[in-house]
């Protein structure tokens, strides 16, 4: 781009498209501040470029492999937003331990959720989850689709939610889940293992092992009869899990 107005005018389209190198873009920006003709041209073409972006809009579901933003992405974002919103608006007194709403109610395509039965965890990032499953085929022996009831449990606004380090424990419709969204990776060569303590018992019953995805997210179904449980815990264990906890719990929550 040089100083000739005609040549600058010719560059307005490539500037609107966002393909000018930095130095030329700066000169164009300065020119647009003083040239009404080029400014009009730019505004007309910029609106069209915005429309070009719209052509890449993703689909509402993953049918036929369409580009599709997982609704679980929204869950992660809204969780952070609502947490910050609550922080901004909460009174100075201590925050309630049980939040009324963490997972916003939204339409969700249960067909896109996959659970690793052998591995026991449902990671929230679909792509990550698939990569992870691929990398742990020996542990994830099979997969199945999560049913709508499970998704509904996790999104239930009336669920009881216990805040724990890295996430929460969700008790919904007498089902219990560990739902983590900021859980560090376990040490190399280790996994997390869930434990349950039945009411009236002092023994921790071993549950599934799991690791969070790279966002620190994982959901672990714990029990379908919460009323029988006194507590749940998570500890760091060797791959395959242990028969009794070998480390101090990183999560320990009483359900009563």
């Amino acid at each position: 781009m040089n100083g000739s107005h005609a040549e600058i005018f010719d560059d307005v389209a490539v500037y609107a498209l966002g393909t000018l190198p930095e130095a030329e873009a700066i000169r164009m920006r300065e020119h647009l501040e003083t040239c009404e003709e080029c400014r009009d041209e730019y505004e007309a073409l910029a609106a069209t470029v915005t429309a070009v972006a719209r052509s890449a809009e993703s689909c509402t579901d993953a049918t036929n492999g369409a580009v599709y933003a997982s609704p679980l992405l929204k869950a992660r974002i809204m969780r952070e937003v609502r947490a910050q919103s609550a922080t901004k608006t909460a009174p100075a007194t201590s925050a309630p331990k049980v939040r009324s709403l963490v997972w916003p109610a939204y339409a969700i395509s249960a067909a896109c959720l996959v659970i690793a039965l052998g591995f026991g965890a449902v990671n929230l990032s679909l792509t990550n989850r698939l990569h992870h499953l691929e990398a742990t085929q020996q542990e994830a022996a099979t997969t199945r689709t999560v049913d709508d009831a499970t998704v509904a449990d996790l999104l239930n606004e009336r669920a009881k939610r216990y805040i724990v380090p890295g996430g929460e424990v969700v008790r919904s419709n007498n089902h219990v889940y560990i739902a983590m969204d900021d859980m560090p990776q376990p040490p190399a060569g280790k996994v997390y293992q869930a434990w349950t303590q039945p009411k009236g018992s002092k023994v921790m019953v071993p549950g599934a092992t799991f690791v969070p995805d790279r966002h620190g997210v994982a959901i672990l179904p714990i029990s379908s009869n919460a009323s029988l449980l006194h507590a749940i815990a998570v500890s760091i264990e060797p791959p395959g899990g242990s028969k009794a906890p070998t480390t101090s719990p990183v999560v320990l929550e009483l359900l009563e």
Binding site: A53, C59, A69, M78, Y106
Partner: peptide, 20 residues
């Protein structure tokens, strides 16, 4: 700091953001 308004914006615009 209205999270519901933010959610409405997300619902309306996330497809173009993610798709782009």
């Amino acid at each position: 700091r209205d999270a519901d308004a933010f959610e409405a914006l997300y619902d309306a615009h996330h497809r173009v953001v993610y798709g782009l």
